[in-house]
Simulated scan of single mutants.
Amino acid sequence: MEFTIRKAQAEDAELLHQLGRMTYSAHFKHMWVSAEELDAFIDKEYGLIELASSLAASNESWLIAETDKPIGFAKVTWNTPVPDSGMSGALLNKLYLNPEETGKNYGRWMFESIINEARDKREGYLWLEVLGENVRARKFYEAFGMQHIKDIPFITASQQSTLQILGMMI
């Protein structure tokens, strides 16, 4: 089956809205104490207005992964300061696949594509935030050479989680 990665366009907002809601909920619903807070978070991250604005931003790129159908996406914000570090680089905001499509190397190919684009843009550094509880994702990124920089809290009205910042020179 052919696998492609393409840059998302303004007309992809609805697709990203649907993919975002489905993939985030599938991967992280069990980590949320409050269903209402989860829904509010997803609405904030994948609302059509927010997506339209993000897709139009010159410092942000959305990618869509496809086989015979869309199976995932990624978002990168270019030239973004790493909190409390004095460094900046490409921030990988999101890289999500339909859970049925994990384990097929699609995530690896997407991540390698992002690294290559960041190098082309002379970013010099790539970083991201990952939930401390998301051991599988952390191991995935560490296998590429990403290293733990620091922990920061992620706080909602009903819970507190730890986000780990990982980064690497590229």
Rank of each mutant, 00 (worst) to 15 (best):
M1C: 07
T4A: 12
K7S: 12
Q9H: 09
E14Q: 14
E14S: 10
L15I: 09
Q18A: 14
Q18I: 14
G20P: 13
M22F: 13
S25T: 15
H30I: 06
V33R: 13
V33Q: 14
S34H: 04
S34G: 05
L38P: 05
K44N: 13
G47L: 02
G47K: 04
E50L: 02
S53I: 01
L55W: 11
L55E: 07
A56H: 07
L63C: 07
L63M: 12
I64Y: 04
A65W: 01
A65Q: 03
E66Y: 07
D68A: 04
K69M: 01
K69Y: 00
I71C: 03
T77Y: 02
N79F: 01
S85D: 10
S88G: 05
Y96I: 08
N98Q: 11
E101G: 04
K104L: 07
N105F: 05
N105P: 00
G107T: 01
R108M: 08
S113M: 09
E117D: 14
E117M: 11
A118V: 00
A118L: 03
R119Q: 15
K121V: 03
Y125K: 09
L128T: 08
L131C: 07
G132I: 06
G132D: 13
N134V: 01
N134S: 01
F140H: 10
F144M: 10
G145V: 10
Q147P: 02
Q147W: 03
Q147T: 15
H148P: 04
I165C: 06
